[in-house]
Design a protein around this nucleic acid. Sequence first.
DNA 1: TGTCATAACTTAATCGTTTTCGTAGTTTTA
DNA 2: TAAAACTACGAAAACGATTAAGTTATGACA
Lengths: 336, 336
Amino acid sequence: MASLKDISKICGVSVATVSKALNNHTDIGEETKEYIRKVAKELGYSPNSSARALKTRRTYGIGVLFVDEAMSGLTHDYFSAVLDSFKRTVEKFGYDITFINCCKERENRMSYLEHSRYRGFDGVVLACIDFHDPEVIELVQSDIPVVTIDHLFNDRIGVVSDNVGGIRELLEYIHDCGHSRIAYIHGAPSAVTTNRLSSFYRTAEQLGMEIPDEYIREAAYRDTHTTYQVTNELLDLPDPPTCILYPDDFAAFGGINAIRERGLRIPSDISIAGYDGIRAARHLEPKLTTVRQDTEQIGCVAARQLVSLIERPKSTLIEHITISGRVIEGRSVAKI
Amino acid sequence: MASLKDISKICGVSVATVSKALNNHTDIGEETKEYIRKVAKELGYSPNSSARALKTRRTYGIGVLFVDEAMSGLTHDYFSAVLDSFKRTVEKFGYDITFINCCKERENRMSYLEHSRYRGFDGVVLACIDFHDPEVIELVQSDIPVVTIDHLFNDRIGVVSDNVGGIRELLEYIHDCGHSRIAYIHGAPSAVTTNRLSSFYRTAEQLGMEIPDEYIREAAYRDTHTTYQVTNELLDLPDPPTCILYPDDFAAFGGINAIRERGLRIPSDISIAGYDGIRAARHLEPKLTTVRQDTEQIGCVAARQLVSLIERPKSTLIEHITISGRVIEGRSVAKI
DNA sequence: TGTCATAACTTAATCGTTTTCGTAGTTTTA
DNA sequence: TAAAACTACGAAAACGATTAAGTTATGACA
């Protein structure tokens, strides 16, 4: 509640001097600074970010747009882990993160861009959203520094998980285990899905594997219901696969249920693999073989890039950065 | 980028008129308003929250302190669900949420209270933290409107999940299924744990169940390692329980692994129950019998209370609100 | 015709900081 | 010893918005 003015009165100096003293400018005497700092502490002075932002045009605030199907990215294992890492990193640089309002029902709501301007975000990070939404495009095309995660735009910094490499290594690992009849239940269409699927086909080809069309099926991410069904359909094929890849670890749970219900055992009767490396999959038997996306790194790199873009716009390269994942060898793929 | 001044120049009216027109005050002519709104739209005008906050002393910002052991509450299933609901609710009232910086390593960092004052939060919500931390106490005792979740302070609004009722109903359900030798692996000491444990003892007594001391064991929340071990120890007892309660669903996974490793089946050989009702537990077989905490309601009520406290401080009751959970009947408790 | 409301503005202060440009007073330099 | 340089501080404007208080012009009313 105490302001610079209060301090200046007590110290008998001008407001300017107090401001400069507390910001450690060089043109204030050392003992004056000391005195001012002491009084400031006694008064419990705390600067006012609004006033500062108004004057300096820097809020040290970063807008976060994380929305998934359910209108929120917070309960999404993968994205919340990325966000967590992002948050920790920007906080080290003195930034705070604020969510860009995404409740679209509200009358008189602001668009993402309007909201970002209103709050004066120094930069924004986007992930887990519908990147074809006109509002998103508008925000990305604006003059606000932006970093996107798991989606790339021209002339904008983007950080993506290496889906191509991830699927390749996973498939190579499974192939090394002796499998060649491998099915892939992939996620709903998106850039991520396209990359993974292409990589799947290419790698299969390179490894000399023949993948029948009926082995490639679509489900949705984190949708156990569809994977349950499709798994049953795959197992009912006259020539069923020996290993099934799922859209992600969570979706794999649906498959696990289907398999267990038939009295089959993982991995002795059928092998499976997930994607993501979520916590639950690490702690349940059979420990899921999966590709662990480096959420720590993705969030951290996105944060560093954004801060760099904000603070050193001229010297920051606009680049697309790929963060590779790692195959986690669980016990869900049999060596045959 | 356009300000009221820019609009006022174009419209040939004063800045005050523009401000009042855009805020729909009554002392501006209808056609003037119309014109001003039109020009504002053309210029892509967006108000500046910093300037507004500076003048009105209201930021429409809410500080969130969600920290768990790992210095983050974001990857915590239960709390991220609560936060998600909280966020959606306050957004409806026009508030944005910002995380209170919790990285304690930073030199020259602000305390939680300092940070909250710096950002001028209209209110703060606390959850999932060490409520004995002096910094937390300082924040709670300050004049900033505060709501705590799953912990209660005198003279401060608190919203808690009904742990007493939850455990009671769960135990009654299990008792109804025919169990009387029930073990409880509880979480690390905390207010939540104390409530659950007391409720466990009391309910057991009321139901006429004898609970041997060796049936009550301590683990940590979300710690599969300890539950794995302790489950084994319980099963090795000369007179093992027929049902084991775990600190939470996630921790139950450790127990599930121990049980399966011994070739035992759930629930025919041993019954188990969790707590929380996390997503993963709903989608895995055997579907876990658990107490689903109403995260939606907890977050929503906390949000409404906080907004009320901010906007109508005089008429808002300082109360402690308990949100009841619900026993979810899975397939992990045998009827015997 | 003079008085009074009312409608529709404007003026000017203010919120808390930052920052540029001074300006004294002191010390160094030539 | 006079000019130059440096030190330590202050005055004042500015950031963008809000708002209390004042000012016209217009019309109503007696």
